[in-house]
Design a binder for these strands. Structure first.
Length: 294
DNA sequence: CCATGTCAAGGTCAC
DNA sequence: GTGACCTTGACATGG
C-alpha cells in the first residue's frame, strides 16, 4: 500500500504547475516553463522518495497548452532526456503515478468538438506518461461526464465513445465515481461493458452511494483492475467542517483516516491511496505515520 | 510592490 | 433562458 498526494508540494519552494496566458504564448515561453516544471517535478519526486510517499499525481499543467492548436512545438523531443530521467527515478523507487485531466474532458459530450478536444487532451496525458517510459499501471483518471438530461443515454454514450478510443489511451484510462452524478454502481456498470478499471473515491462515495459499505465498495472496485493495471487506486478525503457538502478538508482528520484505513485493510484489497487534502504532503506524511502503526 | 481580477476548454442548479 | 457557482493556483494588470 502506497500513500501519496496530488500535484503540489508546499514544502520545497517550487511549482510544477507554472503556466502563462494563451495571449502570451511563444515557443520560448513554453520551453522555459516546461523546463522549470520538469526541474521542479524532479525535486518533488526526490522529496517524496526520501519521505516514503510513493504515490503521486502529476499535474496536467506540466506542459501548458499541450493539446491546444496553438502548440505545435515538439516538446517531447526537446525534453526527452528529462522525461526519461524522471521515469527512471519513478521505476527505480517503484512509485505509482496518476494524472487527472480536469472537468473539460468529457468523452460522452453531445458536441463532437468537445469530444475531439477531450481525446486530444487524453493523448497529451498519455504522451507525458509514455515519455517517462511508465508501464500500464500509471493511470489517467476522469469522470464519466455530463448527464445531459438522460443519465442512461449519457452512460451508453460513454461506452460507445470509449470503444472507439485508441489502444494507447485505453491502456491508461480509468473512471472515478463522482459526488453528484455518477456513483460507484454507475461506474461498475460501465466497467462491466468496457473493461475500464474503476478508481474508488471514498469521499465521493460518502456523498453519493447506494448503501454499499466501504469494504464492499472497495472489493467491487478492485475487481475491475487487472494485473496489468496494478493495485486499485483510491482517492481519499474528508469533509471540511462547516463548509458546503463535498468540500475537501484543509487538513487530515486522523480519526476519520484511521477508521477508513482500518476498513480498507479489512477488505483485504491491496490499494494505493491518494490523499486529496488541501495541505498536501503535510497530511500525506501524517497518513504515512498512521499506516506505520497498523 | 502589492492587491485584485482573470484565466482554453463545461456542466448543473437555482431562479 | 440566464447567471451564479463549482474549484484553484498562479498569471497579469493596474494602482
Amino acid at each position: 500500500m502506497r500513500i501519496g498526494y496530488p500535484c503540489i508540494n508546499r514544502s520545497i519552494g517550487c511549482t510544477t504547475n507554472s503556466t502563462f496566458r494563451l495571449a502570451s504564448y511563444s515557443e520560448e515561453r513554453l520551453v522555459g516553463t516546461v523546463a522549470n516544471n520538469l526541474a521542479c517535478l524532479s525535486r518533488v519526486l526526490r522529496y517524496n522518495t526520501e519521505n516514503g510517499l510513493l504515490f503521486f499525481r502529476i499535474s496536467s499543467d506540466i506542459v501548458p497548452f499541450a493539446s491546444h492548436p496553438v502548440c505545435k512545438y515538439g516538446w517531447m523531443g526537446q525534453f526527452r532526456k528529462e522525461f526519461h530521467a524522471i521515469g527512471a527515478h519513478i521505476r527505480k523507487h517503484k512509485m505509482r503515478i496518476s494524472m487527472h485531466p480536469d472537468q473539460f474532458v468529457l468523452l460522452n459530450a453531445l458536441d463532437d468538438g468537445i469530444v475531439r478536444r477531450s481525446i486530444s487532451e487524453l493523448e497529451y496525458h498519455c504522451d507525458v506518461l509514455d515519455a517517462m517510459g511508465l508501464d500500464s499501471t500509471a493511470k489517467i483518471q476522469i469522470h464519466v461526464g455530463g448527464v445531459y438530461g438522460d443519465k442512461k443515454k449519457a452512460m451508453e454514450q460513454f461506452v460507445q465513445r470509449y470503444r472507439l478510443l485508441d489502444k494507447k489511451i485505453k491502456k491508461r484510462l480509468v473512471i472515478e465515481n463522482d459526488d453528484r452524478l455518477f456513483c460507484l454502481r454507475d461506474c461498475l456498470a460501465i466497467s462491466e461493458r468496457t473493461g475500464i478499471p474503476v478508481l474508488f473515491d471514498s469521499f465521493h462515495h460518502s456523498c453519493l452511494n447506494n448503501g454499499e459499505g466501504l469494504r464492499e465498495a472497495m472489493k467491487a472496485a478492485a475487481r475491475t483492475w487487472k494485473r496489468k493495471d496494478g493495485p486499485l487506486m483510491v482517492d481519499y478525503s474528508s469533509q471540511e467542517k462547516g463548509a458546503r457538502k463535498g468540500k475537501h478538508a484543509e487538513q487530515i482528520d486522523i480519526r476519520h483516516f484511521s477508521a477508513f484505513l482500518g476498513g480498507a485493510k479489512r477488505s483485504g484489497v491491496d490499494c494505493d491511496i491518494m490523499l486529496e487534502i488541501k495541505d498536501k504532503e503535510k497530511s500525506a506524511l501524517k497518513a504515512k505515520a498512521v499506516l506505520g502503526v497498523f
